[in-house]
Nucleic acid binder design. Structure first.
Lengths: 64, 64
DNA sequence: ACATAAAGTAAAATATATATTACATATAGA
DNA sequence: TCTATATGTAATATATATTTTACTTTATGT
């Protein structure tokens, strides 16, 4: 579950904590998603994408 | 969690059962996802998109 | 050197996605 | 009418995402 969340977050100069608050999860959840160790829910992915002003494909899609 | 899975599946003349088998979940899971009653995992969304030859955005993204 | 913010990490608890089993309904074909 | 296929739906069980709490590390500023 590699993704581009961390890059997109840093581009917006946003901390894990503030991203977490805006999408209503804990800092730990964001950390694990960025590390690729979680398989997050679609709803959470959408919320993250929305806050970071990206789309699902931008952050999570990879051509097989 | 509205989405366009059912449309994409029908376009490929594929049954819930066969889609389910190709992404390794049960028929019921596909049915509930199509109804929008589940909040599927990212991994499952990616697998569905891959089998249906779509991207995440094609099937699951909606502009807020 | 000290303090603070940000991030890494881990164990246990909780919430929920998904599986399993089972039964019902609708439709199309023989 | 009978049969088979596809789908809808529900209850219970299981796997796992996410929370909670807590400790640690790293960097930055004073």
């Amino acid at each position: 579950m590699k993704n581009r969340v961390k890059m997109a977050r840093l581009e917006k100069l946003m901390t894990q904590q503030s991203l977490a608050e805006q999408v209503n999860v804990t800092r730990q959840t964001i950390g694990l998603i960025e590390k690729g160790e979680y398989n997050p829910s679609l709803k959470l992915c959408c919320n993250i994408a929305y806050v970071l002003e990206k789309t699902l494909d931008d952050l999570f899609w990879e051509v097989h």
